[in-house]
Design a protein around this nucleic acid. Structure first.
Length: 578
RNA sequence: CCGCCCGUAGCUCAGUGGAUUAGAGCGUUGGCCUCCGAAGCCAAAGGUCACAGGUUCGAAUCCUGUCGGGCGGACCA
């Protein structure tokens, strides 16, 4: 499959190789930081060293031997030890438009990379009976983007929502419900009510050992299949899922499989026995079962003294189950960085159990925690947690306000209440999602309403705004012209747009290789900035030459496709007017 | 005490196969709506890339050490 990105690189490589000065294998091409210098550059230093000649001389000789006419390049120059290529806007645009025409909804995708391979992305994975909060939003949004990025790379992707639906906490909740005159599902905010009941009962149990005993007993009954416990538990799961699904639907997210931890319960006993039989795990004097990793990692526990299993046990069972079911080439977990050791232990345990393939391809995509504005941790007990629905609602509320302001000053392209509501939703959610994705995932983020809901600068809104402007131009032009000739595009601003558009393939591959949606965000932001500058300096509809006008309209349409494609990979939608 | 992550402009961050003059957003200062949407554009000020060594013709980038911040270190998840 050819595309503008690969064409550019293979052309440059072929031209350089044809000079006979540098062997094809040694030709590494780079995108210079200063865009005025070149669109694509070759640093000759390594081969100059091999030849024992000064780098500037080698670069000059290569440039002298290259003829760019008839290629996608307009010029090639030697500068120091660099061979600097500049593209021919018209030639590259022709390839770009062919790429877009071939697959308008898949611009920048490269299905060859992951063809025939399955990848699992575990993300969101909320706890039942707890509301989605800022942290849940991060894994959900990052995971969804990684899901889409890998689809774009041709993988068969399985999105897995691994629910936290099992554990001692349900014993507490069952005991609390037993005591309470009104069940949580009769509350207007049922999941919030569950959290409250749990927290209160847990706190009370700290002083009342009897409550603790009852809670443990209820969890044991749940495990044993007690009818009441089981039915109440199912109700908690169903009600929580209903609330979660509302948010997922809002964000445009769905999962291919939603197996909770409870689903793996039957596999845990046999797994622990197998681990002991294989000598991977050992039975301690206390009766607990543990795994020792020598000096590599601290030891971990598979089974407690009281016979109950742990998080590690369940994740190991899940991992093995995935291998047996899907035989994936990648098994990705989008989970907070604080669980790093946990996953190292799980993967190592699974490896020692003989499942080396899944152990080798399992990846923990770690993201930093969201802290309060002052850097302190959010704690449910402290009551300073911010919930996902609050954030989304507030974002949409502010977007509505902003649109109304634009309507009043006559700068909005929407005015009907239905349209305003729809666009505000798109803008508000876009702002929140983009904020979570625009920087590398590993950093901690201090939560700040003003930043998360900012509408200026490097924000989702900026990208949506530029998209809407592109659409507006194409709309006013009466559509994309049938016949266009991009050779009339001669300004640096136009060339910058075409070059940036061609780089989407690299951004998508990089995002997949590094599990970094931010690579897509950065590419899209650069494209939008290039467009803003072009918009300001190059009249489209008012161009003097009709040929230039047509070519620019066509270019605007391509930019719209590019921004939309980038946003889509982030899980953000783009309104064609706002 | 041990392990991992982070340290780049006042703030938040890009830059991760070493390579042309270290970039962006916010904030600050100044300019731009009789011209396709000012949620925008242009310009200016602002950095010893935490610090110290080392490798290299060349280091924000690789190695070692130090300091500072965060996270983790079996019967929670």
């Amino acid at each position: 499959m050819s595309n503008a990105y690969d064409l550019l690189r293979s052309s440059a490589r072929d031209l350089i190789a044809a000079t006979g000065i540098a062997p094809a294998a040694s030709i590494q091409l780079a995108e210079p930081k200063q865009r005025e210098l070149a669109d694509l550059a070759f640093a000759v230093f390594p081969i100059a060293k091999e030849l024992g000649q000064p780098a500037p001389d080698v670069a000059a000789r290569i440039v002298d031997a290259i003829e760019t006419s008839g290629t996608v390049f307009r010029s090639v120059e030697a500068a120091g030890g660099f061979v600097n290529f500049k593209v021919d806007t018209g030639a590259l645009a022709t390839q770009l438009y062919a790429d877009i025409a071939a697959a308008p909804d898949a611009f920048g995708h490269d299905a060859s990379l992951g063809a025939g391979q399955t990848i699992i992305v575990e993300y969101s994975s909320p706890n039942i009976a707890k509301k989605l909060h800022v942290g849940s939003l991060r894994t959900t949004v990052i995971g969804h983007s990684l899901y889409k990025i890998h689809k774009a790379l041709g993988y068969n992707v399985i999105g897995d929502n691994h629910l936290g639906d099992w554990g001692t906490q349900f014993g507490y909740l069952l005991a609390a419900i037993e005591d309470s005159p009104t069940p949580p599902w009769e509350d207007a905010e049922p999941v919030a009510a569950m959290m409250k009941m749990y927290a209160e009962f847990y706190q009370a149990s700290e002083e009342d050992p009897d409550k603790k005993t009852r809670a443990r007993a209820w969890f044991r009954k749940l495990e044993e299949g007690d009818v009441w416990a089981r039915s109440i538990w199912q109700k908690l799961v169903d009600i929580s899922m209903t609330e979660f699904d509302t948010i997922y639907k809002r964000l445009g997210i769905s999962f291919d499989t939603t197996l909770g931890e409870s689903w793996f319960e039957p596999m845990l006993g046999p797994l622990v026995d197998d681990a002991i039989a294989k000598g991977v795990a050992t039975i301690e004097e206390s009766g607990a079962v543990s795994v020792h990793f020598d000096d590599k990692y601290p030891s971990c526990l598979l089974r407690k003294t009281d016979g109950a299993t742990l998080y590690q046990t369940r994740d190991a069972a899940t991992c093995i189950h995935r291998w047996n079911t899907y035989a994936p080439t990648r098994n990705v977990y989008v989970v907070g960085a604080e669980q790093r050791l946990h996953f190292q232990q799980v993967f190592e345990f699974v490896r020692r159990m003989g499942y080396t393939e899944i152990a080798d391809c399992s990846v923990h995509v770690k993201f930093g925690m969201v802290t309060g504005a002052n850097g302190e941790r959010f704690k449910t007990r402290k009551g300073n947690v911010i919930f996902a629905d609050e954030i989304l609602d507030e974002a949409v509320r502010r977007a509505t306000e902003k649109i109304m302001e634009q309507v009043v000053t006559g700068r909005s392209e929407v005015s009907q209440p239905d349209d305003i509501e729809r666009v505000a939703e798109t803008i508000g959610l876009g702002a929140v999602i983009y904020f979570d994705l625009h920087q590398g995932p590993e950093r901690n983020i201090a939560f700040d309403w003003e930043k998360i809901l900012a509408f200026d600068g490097n924000t989702g809104v900026y990208l949506q705004y530029m998209y809407a402007r592109c659409c507006n131009i194409v709309r006013k032009a009466g559509g994309v012209p049938e016949n266009d000739d991009s050779s009339v595009l001669t300004t640096d601003d136009e060339r910058a747009l075409v070059v940036q558009l061609s780089r989407i393939t690299g951004a998508v591959r990089d995002a997949g290789a590094r599990y970094a949606p931010s690579a897509i965000a950065n590419w899209t932001f650069e494209l939008a900035k290039d467009f803003a500058r072009f918009y300001d300096r190059c009249p489209v509809l008012g161009a003097d030459d009709p040929a230039v006008r047509d070519a620019r309209v066509k270019l605007c349409d391509a930019v719209a496709t590019g921004i939309k494609s980038g946003l889509s990979l982030l899980g953000i939608s783009a309104p064609d007017r706002m």
